[in-house]
């Protein structure tokens, strides 16, 4: 489940799918805005530290302030604001947020004063939710490597599914087209793009559809809030057809979607008809078209 643009209702719809699906592990790969747990109420059964790379740290006792590290660092991560020692008034220091973990400073430090070891960037959780297993994660504050964290979440979901005989994995992907999205869709059997009839979403949908096409993954689209602008919805359908994607369904603009979110429920739990029925039929369309494919 991806959207290009954020805020199109992707997570609300994913939460409903989690309620409707049988045999599915749900993976929250929207690591920037991991919100599924607010609805699925997970109870964590296993947690694992996630390390996406290494981090440099200067030992202030050994640094002679030659400045080599700062000259070779391309991330502007090293400045002379560390404490002094017996050789120098002030030493160099690595800003852990700016450090990319390339290790070049460590390589060139003549004093071997720079430690370079794995950083803990976040945590991956495997949980029992009120609707089956949920794999989710938390990235540490200011940590990069979100693409790698997405891969770690998906891998944990895959292992869990294999070990416990689940047939499907529903992944709530990240917005955008960058590394977390690429990591969210690589190896998926199908992608559902949740969009809405706004000029900006159309633009973003085309970009993300182009990305999906590059990875040769079959894609379908869903137009959320379609009646907000009927003419644009028609344009989205035309564009989708031109891009070789089928329309999985349309969901109408309804405040109840926000109401359900405020109550921390999925729409399909909150209402029977209208938009909730449309979300249900969306899921059935998706399920039928994927039958035999194993994964969603």
């Amino acid at each position: 489940m991806i959207s290009g643009k954020g805020g199109t209702g992707k997570t609300s719809i994913t939460a409903s799918f989690a309620m409707l699906a049988r045999d599915a592990v749900v993976a929250d790969c929207d690591v920037d805005a991991p919100d599924l747990h607010l609805i699925l109420e997970p109870e964590i059964i296993r947690r694992e530290d996630f390390s996406g790379g290494k981090l440099a740290r200067i030992d202030a006792d050994r640094c002679l302030a030659c400045g080599t590290c700062s000259r070779v660092c391309r991330s502007y991560a090293i400045t002379r604001d560390g404490p002094g020692n017996e050789h120098t008034k002030s030493t160099f220091r690595v800003d852990p947020i700016a450090c990319e973990g390339c290790g070049v400073c460590t390589w060139f430090c003549p004093e071997n004063a720079i430690d370079f070891s794995p950083a803990v960037n976040g945590e991956v959780f495997i949980s029992r939710s009120r609707r089956g297993p949920l794999v989710h994660a938390k990235l540490g504050i200011g940590q990069g490597n979100s693409g790698k964290l997405v891969s770690a979440v998906r891998q944990a979901a895959r292992h869990y599914a294999e070990r416990h005989g689940f047939k499907r994995i529903i992944t709530d992907g990240s917005p955008g087209i960058g590394c977390p999205v690429i990591a969210s869709i690589t190896g998926a059997n199908a992608v559902l793009i949740v969009t809405e009839p706004t000029m900006t979403a159309i633009h973003d949908m085309e970009r993300v559809a182009g990305l999906v096409a590059r990875f040769r993954i079959p894609a379908m689209i869903c137009i959320n809030k379609w009646d907000l602008n009927v003419a644009l919805s028609e344009r989205i359908e035309d564009n989708a057809r031109r891009l070789g994607m089928s329309l999985a369904g349309k969901v109408e603009y309804d405040d109840v979607i926000t109401d359900a979110q405020i109550a921390c429920k999925a729409v399909v739990e909150f209402k029977e008809n209208g938009c909730a029925a449309q979300v249900r039929s969306l899921w059935h369309t998706l399920e039928n078209s994927l039958l035999g494919n194993g994964q969603a």
Partner: peptide, 18 residues
């Protein structure tokens, strides 16, 4: 919304660190 608030808190934590 609860989603909005949860993500706002993450952004606040980040800006404070920065």
């Amino acid at each position: 919304t609860p989603f909005g608030l949860h993500d706002l808190k993450m952004a606040v934590d980040l800006l404070r660190v920065l």
